[in-house]
C-alpha cells in the first residue's frame, strides 16, 4: 500500500540530494545513503459501535415504517426532527412523537464534486440541510432529480421513500429529497 505507481509528481524526489545529507569530504567512513523516501503511509481506522439512544431510536424505527416522527418540547415548544429524548435547550423530556410529512425547504446545501475513498454516491451530488415544515431543526439529506446547478436555498423539497421492503431503521429509508415546487410537478 506504499509508494503507489501513480504518485503525484509534486511528491517526487528533488533532482539532487539535499545538501544536509552530503558527507564532509574528510569523513572516511561515510556510509552510502539510500535515496530518501518522501512519504509514509499513515492510515487511520476506528471500529466503533454507534448507540442511537432511546430517543433517536424512536425516529429510526419510524423511518422503517415510512413515517417521519418529530417531538415537541413541552417547556419551550421547540420541535425536533430527528428528535432526541430531551430538549437540548431546556433539558425537558420531549412530548409523544407525532408525524410530519417531511416536506420542507433547503436552508443550505453543498455540491460534492470531489471523489474520495469509500464514497457511496457518484459525484457531483447535492447534500442539503432541509428545514422540514413543522420542525424547528434541520435534517441533512441528498437532493436528487435536479441538476446541481439548479439547486437554490429556499427551494421546496419532498422526501422520496425507499420501497416498503427496503426500509430499515436508517435515514436510507428515505432515498433522497427532490424538488416539490409547482415548476417541477
Amino acid at each position: 500500500m506504499r509508494e503507489p505507481a501513480s504518485e503525484p509528481s509534486v511528491l517526487r524526489e528533488p533532482a539532487s540530494e539535499p545538501s544536509v545529507l552530503r558527507e564532509p569530504a574528510s569523513e572516511p567512513s561515510a556510509p552510502t545513503l539510500p535515496e530518501p523516501l518522501t512519504t509514509m503511509a499513515s492510515p487511520f481506522r476506528m471500529d466503533y459501535t454507534y448507540v442511537a439512544g432511546t430517543g433517536r431510536s424512536v425516529f429510526l424505527r419510524g423511518l422503517a415504517e415510512g413515517r417521519m416522527l418529530a417531538r415537541r418540547c413541552p417547556a419551550c415548544a421547540q420541535v425536533y426532527l430527528p428528535p432526541p429524548e430531551f430538549c437540548s435547550r431546556c433539558l425537558s423530556r420531549l412530548d409523544e412523537p407525532f408525524e410530519l410529512d417531511g416536506r420542507g425547504v433547503i436552508s443550505t446545501f453543498c455540491v460534492v464534486s470531489f471523489p474520495f475513498p469509500g464514497q457511496v454516491h457518484e459525484p457531483p451530488y447535492v447534500v442539503a440541510h432541509i428545514q422540514v415544515e413543522g420542525s424547528g431543526t434541520r435534517l441533512m439529506h441528498l437532493v436528487r432529480e435536479v441538476d446541481p446547478a439548479d439547486v437554490r436555498i429556499g427551494m421546496e423539497v419532498e422526501p422520496v421513500w425507499a420501497g416498503e421492503d427496503e426500509r430499515e431503521n436508517s435515514l436510507t429509508s428515505i432515498r433522497h429529497y427532490r424538488p416539490a415546487g409547482d415548476e417541477y410537478a
Binding site: M1, L11, P18, V20, L21, L33, P34, E35, P36, L37, T38, T39, M40, A41, S42, P43, F44, R45, M46, D47, Y48, T49, Y50, V51, A52, G53, T54, G55, R56, S57, V58, L60, R61, E85, E96, P97, P117, G118, N169
Partner: peptide, 30 residues
C-alpha cells in the same frame, strides 16, 4: 413509546499518507 436503544457497528477509515523530511525519508529507505 420508547423501546431499547438501537445500535450498529461502524468503521471510520482514512487512508492518509504523510510527507516526510530528508532524514526520516532516508531512515525509511534504509
Amino acid at each position: 413509546t420508547e423501546g431499547a436503544s438501537l445500535s450498529a457497528p461502524y468503521t471510520l477509515e482514512f487512508p492518509f499518507e504523510r510527507t516526510v523530511g530528508p532524514k526520516i525519508g532516508t531512515f525509511f529507505a534504509g
